[in-house]
């Protein structure tokens, strides 16, 4: 049973926005991942997106591509990612966790087996970049057996007709991709984001998270004014990787990551408290 619904309901009741950090499982090493996840929760993360390492991450910019490469070099794949999630769940049964990745590792395992394994490990939702509504039906049926959410992406190029199709099938929340491009790209046009979110909200009451292009407390704060959640990926992956590469120290790198999420949490709170 997905934890996303109750958590977003509570945030909505408290007029708060969710902060959603993204990390790649096993990046820069497997031992760091679970302690990092706990620290991110302490720093103010409401939901965590866990990237499943893939050899060909087609929608990622250079920063997250390197994260996938580091994780693969350490041998992390879908099964080990699920094991890390199960480990996290031993001490945190509250924080919703989302798997974000690409179709092929799921296809290889088989969608029924994926759904069963996700339920057992404690996954609440999946975002699969290359499974648009046209291709996701088979997996979605399996996820629904366990009430796991399939999170759909909507982008600046999504037509209004498609927004309708997508919102009809969506659960958990909607992930709005704030810019045309890969993760970590460009600069964010918050006015355009606001306009697109208004269209999405005509068709759904689901929370809308915004990701791609949120780098720091400032950009997060600007987006939080119109979004229900902000997703921070490349900036977090980059800061942790840079620090770890210099000092080879898990605890230090985790603290750096937690401090970024903490500052984003404060920026978001400040922008939305009135």
């Amino acid at each position: 049973m997905s934890r996303l619904g109750p958590v977003f309901q509570r945030l909505r009741d408290e007029s708060r926005r969710a902060v959603i950090p993204y990390l790649v499982a096993g990046d820069p090493n497997e031992g760091l991942t679970v302690p990092l996840m706990h620290s991110l929760v302490e720093a103010g993360a409401d939901v965590i997106e866990v990237g499943v390492p893939f050899s060909d991450p087609m929608s990622e910019g250079p920063t997250i591509q390197k994260g996938h490469e580091r994780a693969l070099a350490g041998g992390t794949s879908l099964n080990s990612t699920l094991a890390l999630i199960a480990e996290f769940r031993q001490t945190d049964t509250e924080t919703p966790l989302i798997l974000m990745g690409y179709a092929n590792p799921l296809e290889r395992k088989g969608y029924a087996a994926v759904a069963d394994a996700c339920a057992e490990a404690g996954v609440d939702g999946l975002i699969t970049v290359d499974l648009p509504p046209e291709e996701v039906a088979v997996m979605n049926a399996e996820l629904q057996r366990h009430s796991i959410d399939n999170i759909f992406l909507i982008s600046p190029t999504t037509t209004e007709d498609r927004v309708i199709t997508i919102t009809e099938q969506a659960s958990g929340f909607i992930y709005y991709v704030a810019l045309k491009g890969v993760t970590g790209a460009g600069h964010l046009d918050t006015e355009a984001v606001e306009a697109h979110l208004a269209i999405i909200r005509q068709y759904t009451d689901l929370p809308v998270a915004v990701g791609f292009g949120i780098k720091d407390a400032q950009t997060a704060a600007r987006v939080a004014v119109c979004a229900d959640a902000v997703v921070v990926g490349s900036a977090l992956v980059d800061e942790i990787a840079a620090d770890f590469s210099e000092h080879q120290n898990d605890a230090r790198a985790i603290a750096i990551g937690a401090s970024l999420i903490s500052s984003i949490r404060q920026g978001v709170n400040l922008a939305t408290s009135n």
Binding site: M58, P132, E134, F152, I154, S155, T157, T159, R162, V177
Partner: peptide
């Protein structure tokens, strides 16, 4: 109509490309 040859083919791309 879905671009499938039996079970093969299809449109497995990011949402941003679907309109194009």
């Amino acid at each position: 109509a879905h671009g499938r040859f039996g079970v093969y083919g299809g449109k497995f791309v990011a949402e941003t490309l679907m309109a194009a």
